[in-house]
């Protein structure tokens, strides 16, 4: 396995992880915002989470699509 392949794998995995983390925090932030209005949105733009997740997902797909949608082992 070449080092270039490994680098792609690692970066792809990190981007995929970032995507999942951002989606998780976005959903959590939306939920918190419903219960406690202004908790997040008074300081941060909620859409920023979502757009960052979309951008991370796009880069992840470009670099290593398999990291975002890993094959299920039998």
């Amino acid at each position: 396995m070449s080092s270039q392949y490994l680098t792609r794998k690692v970066i792809g995995e990190l981007l995929a992880f970032t995507t999942r983390t951002l989606v998780f925090w976005y959903i959590l932030a939306v939920f918190i915002e419903m219960v406690l209005p202004g908790f997040v949105s008074s300081h941060l733009n909620l859409d920023m989470f979502l757009w960052s997740a979309i951008i991370a997902a796009l880069f992840s797909l470009l670099i290593d699509p398999s990291s975002l949608f890993p094959k299920q082992s039998a």
């Binding site: 690692v10 995995e13 990190l14 992880f17 970032t18 983390t21 951002l22 925090w25």
Partner: peptide, 13 residues
């Protein structure tokens, strides 16, 4: 190092 970076990514939020 990957897990360290992942931990940082998760901890920032």
């Amino acid at each position: 190092p990957v897990w360290i970076v992942k931990a940082i990514i998760f901890c920032v939020p």
